[in-house]
Amino acid sequence: MPVVELVDVRKAYEKKVAVQQLSLSIDAGQMFGLLGPNGAGKTSSIRMMMGITMPDSGRVSLFGKPFERASLDRVGYLPEERGLYKKMKVLDQRVFFGQLHGVSAHDARQRAVDWAKRLEIDNALEKKTEELSKGMQQKIQFIGTILHDPGLIVMDEPFSGLDPVNASLLERTLLELKDQGRAILFSTHRMDQVEKLCDSICLINNGQAVLSGRVREIKSRYERNHVIVEFEGSSSFLNSSQIAEARNYSGHAEIRLKPHADAQKLLHEAAAVATIYRFELVEPSLEEIFIRTVGGKVDA
């Protein structure tokens, strides 16, 4: 039974169609990436899952039942536009939001303290929001998303505003929650995180799903014609006739080979002019697939 399911969902605002015929489903214990360029319809889709807006047609189900507000007590939501009461104490806010989800004040307080310790932010609990940095506010907001122990966690750009240390902390936490059986959906532009964390993705563009499925299965659809080279010495081998496109980042090159190109020949050419530390034939990255799929069709 999917935890969340959208079937042929459509949403239009006056003349602008934000989402059309979108279908997706997420199971328990699955991490799902909702991807797409700016204005593609990601936030509109998420808002319909959360009952903030209603679809014009199609069906939204939560926990196997047609959408009903009571189900939202089992959903944690981190919107793209973060919101905290500036003048209110952090702990009081977490208790308030916990209570809105049906958790008792005592339990909400205890859980907020526990999570704050885990996310290394317990010294902020007695402060007002306006006294916190953006990254700290982000972590506080995340605690609010999971405080009521939701079965479904929906996050819009959860990593924005976090430094690498805190982003890594959040990644580990999400993986733990996933292992505990939570269904997790997040939208992001960070393809490296999607690749690391997500089991499945749905790429939407102009409100329509243009690519969806399990990450491994999607990547296997593409030819293994990408090469990563780490080297020292001349980069003249990047002009090889085997190469369709190359990006050189000072000793780290990402290369796309021409169709049916000979990778071994390229390795010989490279070894002749430089010391090679790494030469790896890889599938295209999700970023590459993203750009190839929506490239040239992205809204300004």
């Binding site: 903030i52 007590d73 959903v75 939501y77 919107p79 973060r82 919101g83 905290l84 939001f97 609010g144």
Partner: peptide
Amino acid sequence: IQEKTSRIFEVMLATVK
């Protein structure tokens, strides 16, 4: 207006009508 400018509405609306 304060709730609107602090963008707290969206979190609230995910729980409260």
